[in-house]
Simulated assay, not measured.
Amino acid sequence: MLGALLVAATAAYAGFQWTIRLVVYPQFATVPREAFVRYEARHQGLVSIAVGPLFVLDGAACIAAFVHGPRWPSAAAGACLAVILLLTAFGAVPQHRALSSGFDAAVHRRLLLVDSLRLGLALGAVGAAVWFAAG
């Protein structure tokens, strides 16, 4: 049961991250310049509502799995989430703040790089969750 919860939580976040990286962020470059500041503000508000519960669910599942054991796979999933949270706070958020005043291609490229790292870590967390569930 706990293994299924961890897999579901990590997969839900990974699916979200996949969508953001492959669909949402690439579209930033297509938003008309005069509409971008408003678009970015709306994006920030809505994405926070969407990702917040996923972070909470994923974190709670990682903690519960770690307490229950086996610890190595749950620790790996938790470490992936911790790095994702750090990349979000110190990588993505500053790029979004910079984009708040208007689209900048260099800032957008940095956001895409940070997001690619988050996607890789999210997929790694799914792998660790599957390892936990199989153990």
Rank of each mutant, 00 (worst) to 15 (best):
H96E: 01
V37L: 03
A82C: 11
S74R: 13
D104R: 13
V37Y: 07
V51D: 04
Y25R: 00
A75R: 08
V56K: 07
S74G: 04
A60P: 08
A128G: 08
F55R: 11
S74W: 04
V7Q: 06
V126D: 08
G52L: 15
A89Q: 09
R110Y: 04
A4V: 11
R110C: 00
A129D: 07
A92Y: 02
Y25H: 00
I20N: 09
Y39H: 10
H68Y: 01
F90M: 09
S101M: 02
A122N: 10
V47S: 02
A77H: 13
R71I: 00
R33N: 08
G69R: 00
A133D: 12
I20K: 10
V23F: 12
G78C: 10
F16L: 11
R109F: 05
R33A: 10
G45L: 13
M1W: 12
T19Q: 15
L57H: 13
G15P: 14
R118Y: 02
L22T: 05
F16V: 05
F66M: 14
H108G: 04
L111W: 00
P53R: 15
A41T: 05
A65M: 03
A50L: 14
L6A: 06
Y13F: 15
A82E: 13
P70Q: 04
A29M: 03
G69N: 01
L99V: 06
I84E: 09
G45C: 01
P26E: 02
A128N: 05
V130M: 06
W72D: 01
A89T: 10
V114T: 06
D58T: 10
Q17L: 12
L87Y: 00
A75I: 11
Y13K: 08
F66D: 01
L111R: 02
S100D: 09
A29Y: 01
G135V: 14
G3K: 11
Y13Q: 09
L81W: 06
D104H: 05
G102W: 09
G69C: 00
A14S: 13
L22P: 02
A61Q: 12
A106G: 11
Q17T: 15
V126E: 11
I63N: 02
S116T: 08
Y25E: 00
